[in-house]
């Protein structure tokens, strides 16, 4: 049972490496989730207005991403696309795949929230003579946004956890740092402990933000 004993000197010696990995994981979380939410709003808008052709394409994309493993998508992109001359560095590939993945889920979240709104809301807007654009931007989208927050945060957390998969193509985020350390030093417990602390901090931090956001958005609104 000697392996379970933690060598604290070693633990603290790898802390700077972990901080660098943590930084990259947080950047991935911020960049991929930020872009995916912005794009998802655009895609959900196109779905709402039933724009022909584009609408079918988006549905196919969302279904394809949601029904296949992200790890396979990652390999398809990173190891597959070079076959037709499209190649990018591990980091860029990772950002693209994670963003494309998260966008599909966020689009579905927003679409679901919009579809879940009472039809009367749209009818009221129509009966007041509002044009569809104004109705969507100022009524449908903001009201749907309030109901979509929990699902959206779930996807953000999932995407952040899935960023660990990027270690498999060599993106030097948290998991990569830990596995690299283990390969070098064979000290697995210290590295897994550090990894556990980092991920728990990130996910619990995000969960705390959800709670705060829900409380804030709920003000003057909930029945």
């Amino acid at each position: 049972m000697t392996g379970i004993a933690i060598d604290w000197n070693y633990f603290w010696s790898v802390a700077p490496l972990f901080l660098r990995g943590l930084e990259l994981t947080l950047v991935l979380c911020l960049v991929c989730n930020g872009i995916s939410i912005a794009v998802a709003y655009v895609l959900a808008t196109i779905l709402y207005f039933r724009t022909p052709v584009l609408c079918q394409l988006i549905r196919a994309y969302v279904s394809l991403i949601r029904n296949t493993p992200m790890l396979v998508q990652l390999f398809f992109f990173y190891f597959g696309l070079p076959e037709i001359g499209v190649a990018a560095s591990p980091l860029i590939s990772g950002i693209i795949v994670l963003t494309v993945w998260a966008t599909a889920y966020q689009t579905e979240n927003i679409r679901g929230a919009i579809e879940g709104l009472p039809p009367r809301l749209t009818e009221a807007g129509r009966s007041l003579g509002l044009r569809p654009g104004g109705l969507f931007v100022f009524v449908i989208a903001p009201v749907a946004t309030r109901t979509v927050v929990p699902a959206m945060m779930n996807t953000i957390i999932s995407a952040t956890k899935n960023s660990a998969l990027l270690s498999s193509i060599g993106v030097m985020e948290l998991t990569y740092v830990a596995m690299d350390n283990i390969a070098e030093s064979y000290r697995s417990m210290e590295n897994f402990l550090a990894l556990l602390i980092c991920y728990l901090t990130i996910v619990m931090g995000l969960s705390a933000i959800v709670t705060l956001l829900e409380r804030h958005l709920g003000r003057g609104y909930r029945r």
Partner: peptide
């Protein structure tokens, strides 16, 4: 705790870390 850590980290922990136990 099990829900908060990425699956792949759990997998690596079990595969590479379990021998320590």
């Amino acid at each position: 705790v099990f829900r908060d850590i990425p699956q792949v980290v759990l997998l690596f922990f079990i595969f590479f870390g379990a021998p320590a136990f």
